[in-house]
Design a protein around this nucleic acid. Structure first.
Lengths: 228, 228
DNA sequence: TCCATATTTCGATGATAATGGAAACATCTA
DNA sequence: TAGATGTTTCCATTATCATCGAAATATGGA
């Protein structure tokens, strides 16, 4: 018959529409309560709970308890990456409403991918760092040059803190909408958080798009030489 | 509700065990008749036909008619890449038999990924080309250096022919078993075919593993400096 | 033209699993 | 301790879909 890992087992978890919606929401990298995931998927909390349990068992989703609340998120970075890769294959959804079209555009423009920037903004940011010699291509990762480290420090990102995190320091992530790599990993995450701190970008509620603020426009132009 | 492409639609195609087996077989990059795919999946031809139709409609599988035969294969390279990425997430299948364990080992050692080399051999080959300066990293692709072009010509691979093909010239592909990139695209394909022509490697029937021949061992050592 | 082979279509069956109501459970607040 | 909120467990219902027998279709060869 067949040897090798079992694709069906993973795919099955994603194949159900309700589950797919939940996972797509979780791609924003944040943790969400079961009830709001249920609402997003248009199902009852019991049903969401049922699905979440399945996905936890399969190590696709992780839960964190905080008092009477339970927050659900993706298990790890790899899951996010595989989901993103599935998105690149997925048929573009037919646009049913003006709102949906707007959302779609916003998501392609700038979004969070798990815990770092993606979309046009993410790719442009990565390109900018490469152009300035702050970043170099490695095999399936990036390398932060000494100049890059200085730049990050000047940008008030504490690389010592970032390095301490128990996760990949820096990483390449393939963008489904841009078909290009962007910066991910702890460094990518730190960059996203710094931009949010600076209020250069802000999260758009309910979807994983992010918005560039007016201050952000100027800042991105001046510091990264990016026109958004 | 939800914006963006529909993951479930793709995942659903893969989520069914029979379909997963079929797709895994097709990952060898060759085209197979429906009947043999049915046999591999342990289902009747009608059922296989049913599944194949679904997968064709979703642009995951492609069919080529030759007389009264119909040969099925993966639609394109991207599908193969997504399937490989799913494999990286998939739980390792419990080893049920000696044969299965042997197959699994063989597949991790050297296999075809769609139409080029993967596994340890594929990665080592890519590393060797990189080490010799024949290949360079680009963003999500490789670049063949002038020295590399000369090397390929000396190795009797006709790059003019390769360039003419209506497909990506050269490409990076992520290896699920090695977690490393290897060379893909038309050039990767040409390399595979040349190695088969030289009888340095040969396909193992029924599974997508390839075997390094005795001649191959010597050749790989001398030309690529690879110990297998 | 007729038969053999490969594949598909149709239709019925059966297994699987998503769903939500009811109720239990856990945790926080008053 | 009682009530409120969020979540899970149990269970019955229902919808979906993989499966295969039977028959139709397509193609090549005799």
């Amino acid at each position: 018959m067949n040897a090798g890992p079992n694709i069906a087992a993973v795919a099955k978890l994603i194949s159900e529409p309700s589950r797919a919606v939940i996972l797509t929401v979780l791609l924003d990298g944040r943790f969400h309560p079961a009830s709001s995931l249920a609402y997003a998927a248009g199902i009852k909390p019991q049903t969401a709970s049922f699905h979440l349990k399945k996905m936890i068992e399969a190590n696709v989703v992780r839960v964190e308890k905080h008092g009477r609340h339970r927050y659900y998120g993706l298990e790890n970075y790899e899951v996010a990456e595989v989901l993103e890769s599935l998105l690149s294959l997925a048929p573009k959804v037919e646009v049913k409403s003006f709102k949906q079209a707007t959302n779609d555009k916003a998501i392609r423009y700038a979004r969070t991918c798990y815990d770092h920037l993606a979309g046009q903004l993410g790719v442009k940011m990565t390109d900018s760092l490469l152009d300035h010699g702050f970043l170099e291509h490695r095999d399936n990762t990036f390398n932060l040059t000494p100049e890059g480290e200085k730049f990050f420090r000047d940008f008030e990102i504490d690389l010592e803190q970032v390095r301490k995190k128990r996760r990949t320091y820096i990483h390449k992530c393939l963008d489904w909408s841009e078909r290009r790599h962007h910066i991910a990993g702890a460094v990518g995450n730190a960059l996203l958080e710094r931009l949010i701190d600076l209020k250069w970008i802000e999260r758009v509620p309910t979807i994983r798009a992010v918005k560039v603020t007016t201050t952000g426009k100027t800042g991105l132009q001046e510091v990264f030489n990016i026109e958004m």
